[in-house]
Design a protein around this nucleic acid. Structure first.
Lengths: 108, 108
DNA sequence: TCTAATTGCGCAATAT
DNA sequence: CATATTGCGCAATTAG
């Protein structure tokens, strides 16, 4: 029973003509907006993350600098006072020889 | 000398009809593509930057950890051997009293 | 004023 | 079957 001008459905494509089509389009447009907002937020958060990490990095670098200076000071102090006769074997992963070496970066 | 069928310009809107209009549209479409490619690249680079910074951060944290441990070791070593009679005033920005204090984070 | 770059928006194809 | 994502073109706006 072929009714109407258009035979059956005229095609399952997205271009119906109105009514249900329009409803679907509107909902998709909303989805598109949501998706794009989300995308922009993510991008923004990533940029913020870069700044956070750069700050943490700066703090850590200063920390390393300070610790290195203090370590150098203590080494010199230690060597100046007495350079041998130590028990050691009390701290893990530390090589006394290396640590007391005169290079400014023992642990690398 | 008004030529052509349309009187003058028919309106400065973007919808001329063809020819020059089409040319402008095509050029704009190209510009849009370039702009979007660039935008995506920038986003990608930002994400890469985050990873780089996280790695640097990890390295620095390990460095701080190691230096802190070594420093603790040397302090104990120093205190165990001799806890007084030092000249100091030889290194800038270092407070010997604080440094030799028993807290594990002297410089903060 | 013109051109290129950006940006918001809707459509449709496609991915989830 | 519905929503989410994505490429694409249009037009308005911005920047140069």
């Amino acid at each position: 029973m072929p009714r109407r001008g258009r035979v059956k459905k005229e095609g399952p494509e997205s271009g119906e003509d109105s009514d249900e089509y329009r409803k679907r389009r509107d909902r998709n447009n909303q989805a598109v907006k949501r998706s794009r907002v989300k995308s922009k937020q993510k991008t923004q958060e990533t940029m913020n993350r870069v700044n956070e990490l750069r700050n943490e990095n700066t703090v850590l670098e200063e920390k390393v600098k300070t610790l290195t200076k203090e370590l150098g000071f203590l080494k010199e102090l230690f060597l100046a006072h007495a350079s041998n006769s130590v028990d050691s074997s009390k701290f893990d992963g530390i090589d006394l020889q290396k640590m007391l070496a005169d290079d400014s970066n023992p642990s690398q």
